[in-house]
């Protein structure tokens, strides 16, 4: 192993198994990966090394509904450093009841390839 090779351990967040994956990395390139139990783990480590992504699942305000909020999530992960800008956009949203799960309330949030969709049915009051 040359001096510039580093060993790094990742805890995979793709599923609840949370595999501990060990990667040998040299100059930003992955030399080897061990410890993953599925291909998603390997993809996760590549993603973490190059451009880590995450999802968030907050709520938006509902007017005229039996509940004050409807929960939402992102259809695709977004770059980690975009979490707070995306959150700010979601906080600005107001929707009117009734709302149905699966409805897209914001397309291409912050210009990213991800949509904000409703995850909870809220009937009108």
């Amino acid at each position: 192993m040359s001096e510039s090779t580093i060993k790094k351990t990742y805890t995979c967040i793709i599923c609840p198994n949370g595999c501990d994956i060990e990667a040998e990395i040299k100059d930003g390139e992955i030399l080897s990966i061990t410890g993953h139990t599925c291909p998603k783990g390997e993809a996760y480590v590549h993603q973490e090394l190059t451009a880590p992504t995450r999802t968030i699942a907050p709520s938006v305000l509902v007017t005229g509904g039996e509940l004050p909020l409807a929960s939402v999530r992102l259809t695709k992960p977004i770059p980690k450093d975009m979490i707070f800008p995306v959150m700010d956009e979601i906080k600005k949203l107001t929707i009117t009841a009734p709302v149905c799960e699966g409805t897209v309330v914001l397309e291409k949030v912050c210009g990213l390839d991800s949509e904000v969709i409703i995850t909870k049915n809220v009937k009108a009051k």
Partner: peptide
């Protein structure tokens, strides 16, 4: 599940990551 609005539910059951309300629905 109604208040567990984060995602990560249903990976083994539905093969995709759902929020709590979606899993229940």
């Amino acid at each position: 599940l109604r208040q567990c609005i984060h995602d990560g539910f249903g990976l083994s059951r539905f093969g995709k990551s759902l929020s709590g309300p979606e899993y229940a629905q």
